[in-house]
């Protein structure tokens, strides 16, 4: 059992508050992504769980045991660092074996685990190389193998893919998902990339300014953002917002339809981006910047005057002052 409980964890650095009383419950075997822009406190929270940073208040429990006062080495977890932190003076084999050696595993178990994880991450031909002789993607795989080799109850990952180029990141994302599903480890994954969070996680916690804005499945986060921030941060391009007497009408770019003239809102197209699968239009409607995502077969010239209409069932209402979602049933008509 390795469920994680974050209980009122707060962190301030001098006068600045990095985290404000964060509460989070993570089930055993669950994969949770901490998603947010840089400076939102997600890495600080991860480092507090790892024991690399000390919280100002609150507790962290793993499997019901309070580990707040334990040093990192006694917490029984593994971590993949953003810059991998693969030891440059050790061969790949010794890097993978490092955690087991530190925990005093016997040589038979070390050999078995190194073979197993190296196989899992396709590192067998590289075992006798030094990290400097590897590519970025290979080093990243060594960092994951080193973490999985100790068979941790909890795996922490701090933006593990952010240093890879776009194509490799896509490959590694799929690979990581497969490997982690097999390992069945409780995982906390920090990222600022919403595609990564949506693609990998069972649940996503969106952080903003040291606070959790919303926790939910990728689909809940995407389709039912709890706040204006979540709608505007998750999704590429993000949600559009139009003012409606004290409220905000939130609508995803793909939920806007082009309609006949005289029907719907007038929309002046400024920029057309043919992205292949989609054609992205950026323009002005009711004085607001609005993005419309159309099927890639549409051809619209820039400067065109169109009319758009939101699909009524897709509209999400938010309070204009608090930015919070208005529960269904109490919303006005569009």
């Amino acid at each position: 059992m390795a469920g994680i409980t974050i209980d009122g964890v707060r962190k301030s650095f001098g006068a600045t508050t990095a985290l404000e009383a964060v509460n989070l419950e993570i089930a055993d075997h669950e994969f949770v992504a901490l998603l947010g822009p840089s400076g939102c406190g997600k890495t600080t929270l991860l480092r507090i769980i790892a024991g690399l940073e000390t919280q100002t208040a609150g507790r962290v429990l793993i499997g019901g045991r309070d580990i707040s006062a334990l040093p990192p080495r006694a917490r029984g977890l593994a971590m993949v660092f953003q810059n991998y932190a693969v030891f440059p003076h050790l061969r790949v084999r010794e890097n993978i074996a490092f955690g087991l050696r530190m925990h005093g595993a016997d040589s038979a178990r070390i050999a078995r685990q190194v073979t197993r994880t190296a196989g899992l991450l396709r590192l067998e031909p590289l075992l006798d190389r030094y990290p400097a002789q590897l590519s970025g993607g290979q080093r990243q795989r060594v960092a994951v193998a080193r973490a999985l080799a100790v068979e941790p109850a909890v795996l922490l990952m701090d933006e593990p893919l952010s240093n890879l180029d776009a194509l490799l990141r896509l490959d590694m994302r799929a690979e990581l998902k497969e490997v982690l599903r097999e390992a069945g480890t409780t995982t906390i994954y920090v990222t600022h990339d919403q595609t990564e969070a949506m693609g990998l996680a069972d649940r996503i916690a969106v952080l903003h300014a040291g606070r959790i804005e919303q926790i939910g499945t990728p689909s809940e986060i995407y389709h039912h953002p709890a706040t204006r921030f979540v709608g505007g941060f998750v999704g590429s391009p993000p949600m559009n917002f139009l003012a409606r007497d004290g409220r905000l009408l939130g609508i995803r770019p793909e939920d806007l339809d082009i309609v006949a003239t005289g029907d719907g809102l007038p929309f002046r197209v400024n920029v057309v981006e043919p992205l292949g699968a989609q054609t992205l239009l950026t323009g002005i409607a009711e004085g607001h910047l609005v993005r419309v995502a159309l099927n890639g077969e549409h051809h619209v010239p820039p400067g065109a005057e169109l009319h758009i209409r939101p699909r009524p069932e897709r509209i999400r209402w938010m309070d204009a002052t608090t930015g919070r979602a208005i529960p269904p049933g109490t919303e006005p008509s569009p």
Partner: peptide, 17 residues
């Protein structure tokens, strides 16, 4: 980089190690 020492501590190394 401090990350090496941090990684080592997460993977179970005592300060002396």
């Amino acid at each position: 980089p401090k990350e090496y020492a941090e990684a080592a501590s997460v993977f179970g190394a005592s300060p002396w190690r």
